[in-house]
């Protein structure tokens, strides 16, 4: 009986030590391989159609895995890297495997279209991806919204954007503001209010953490642009009234031109420079400032 107990103790010890050791060895192997294992796998199986045949009918499960890989690939690079060369193949494979995976078109196209380091800076590929999505899912009007968004924000092609919104608005069940968006595109082209509406739409359409954060930053910057345009106007009013530049915000408040200290969308007061220029305190929080700033 004692020999049995010894065996049990030795086996339990070996189990613990060997398992712990295997963790270190595996980490070592992963380090030795480098972080590009996904890259190799994608490059060596570049066709989603072939993969679909190899997946023995479990293609939608495999699509989920590839979509997860795409999100992780994007997440590991966003704001850090300008190289996103695998993003498009990953998205292609994902949508070949499961042509109805809406999120892959919706979020994936924005990953693709954003300028580095926020995305791959490939709006044309994003458009191609969205058009593929619309071909496969013509009833899903929100894809038209994203298509219009990419045309407008990243390609500055207002005519194409207008077409996208109009087609989307014709899909049964599309919300009425799609028609409003189409009209805006037609009459104004680039415009701060439109940009806000578009980014708000992106924010509402996605569940992706990175994407929501990007949309929030864009919205904050757009609102800050709008705020500062308005503050510029009031400073001009003050100058016309008093003939001097205000030294601080309280000068404007006393003059009845401001109800209180103006706060930016993150809740921090705007900065009033000595030369009458308005600025924000922390530029790192407003990466997209100035797009709609009146000069």
């Amino acid at each position: 009986m004692r020999s049995k107990k010894t065996v049990l103790i030795v086996a339990a010890g070996a189990l613990a030590v060997c398992f712990a050791g295997s963790i270190f060895a595996l980490d070592g192997a992963t380090a030795a391989r480098g972080g590009e294992s996904t890259l190799e796998e994608v490059l060596y199986l570049p066709s989603g159609k072939a993969l679909q045949r190899l997946s023995l009918g479990y293609s939608s499960l495999l699509a989920d895995i590839y979509w997860t890989r795409a999100v992780q690939y994007f997440g590991s690079r966003v704001q850090r890297s300008t190289r996103y060369e695998l993003l498009d193949p990953l998205l292609e494979i994902t949508t070949d495997l499961d042509p109805h995976l809406i999120v892959a078109y919706q979020d994936g196209s924005i990953f693709l279209s954003q300028q580095p380091t926020w995305g791959a800076g490939e709006p044309d590929k994003a458009v191609a991806l969205l058009e593929k999505g619309i071909r496969n899912n013509p009833e899903y009007w929100r894809l038209y919204f994203t298509l219009g968004f990419v045309h407008y924000v990243d390609r500055h092609d207002y005519k194409a954007a207008e077409q996208a919104f109009r087609k989307g608005s014709e899909v049964p069940g599309a919300l009425p503001w799609m028609r409003v968006m189409a009209a805006r595109m037609a009459e104004k082209g680039a415009d701060l209010g439109t940009a806000v509406a578009l980014w708000q739409g992106v924010y509402n359409n996605t569940n992706d953490k990175e994407l929501k954060q990007t949309a929030t930053m864009h919205l904050d910057s757009l609102r800050a642009d709008a705020d500062m345009n308005e503050l510029d106007r009031r400073i001009q009013l003050y100058r016309q009234k008093t003939g001097a530049l205000p030294a601080r915000w309280s000068d404007l408040i006393r003059a009845g031109l401001l109800p209180g200290i103006p706060l930016d969308p993150t809740g921090v007061p705007y900065k009033l420079e000595a030369n009458g220029q308005v600025n924000i305190q922390d530029p790192s929080k407003f990466k997209f400032l100035g797009e709609f700033r009146n000069k």
């Binding site: 049990l8 339990a12 070996a14 613990a16 398992f19 060895a25």
Partner: peptide, 28 residues
Amino acid sequence: GGSLIVMNTLYALLYSAAVTAGAVLIFE
């Protein structure tokens, strides 16, 4: 890399030893 070969060898040996020890624990 040679280190990949070494590390994978270590990993496979240790992992297998741990699992076999588990089998012994159950079977005993």
